[in-house]
């Protein structure tokens, strides 16, 4: 339903604009990201972003920018060239998750929109649950795959 609406809007948009915006290509896509919002408990996680972009084949698996509260015009993120519309997302316009997903966990948090920690994990576990890695099968999956407990990392560093 949502996708259909978006596509209809997209077509309407293409009809109205000329093929400008060549510059808004796939630039600025980060190679590696350090996700550190849980550094009190775990060492920051190094996330191979560009590796994931190629496995995922697109950005939408994680950067769901649609259906959000975002009301910016389509051309801010998309090239208006019809043949490349979907895949050519202006990376500079993609916001980090924390701008919309709060890291704080008070009463009511995460009911309508996942908290930051949950948003990351839900996005990652779309693929990493039972498939790549052992998350979902073994509680050790969390530390085997990504997380080094903070205290332990300090010990390892000392060695």
């Amino acid at each position: 339903m949502k996708n259909a609406t978006v596509v209809v809007m997209a077509i309407a948009l293409w009809a109205g604009v000329s093929a400008a915006g060549e510059k808004a290509g796939v630039g600025n896509v980060p190679k590696e990201l350090v996700l550190g919002s849980l550094s009190r408990v775990y060492e920051p996680v190094r996330f191979n972003h560009s590796g994931h972009v190629s496995t995922a084949g697109g950005c939408a698996d994680c950067h769901h920018q649609h259906g959000s509260t975002d009301v910016r015009s389509c051309t801010q993120c998309h090239r208006t060239d019809p043949s490349a519309f979907k895949k050519n997302v202006n990376a500079g316009m993609l916001k980090p998750c924390r701008e919309c997903h709060s890291a704080s966990a008070g009463p009511g948090a995460g009911i309508d929109r996942p908290t930051l920690k949950a948003a990351y994990h839900q996005a990652c576990f779309k693929c990493h649950r039972g498939d790549v890695g052992t998350v979902g099968k073994d509680p050790k999956g969390c530390t085997e795959m990504c997380h080094v407990p903070a205290a332990q990392a300090r010990l390892d560093g000392k060695k």
């Binding site: 009463p107 948090a109 995460g110 009911i111 920690k117 948003a119």
Partner: peptide, 14 residues
């Protein structure tokens, strides 16, 4: 438990 859950499987509210 709600605070700790990494995937938002446990939430607390009204």
């Amino acid at each position: 438990c709600a605070e700790a859950c990494p995937v938002g499987a446990v939430t607390f509210g009204k």
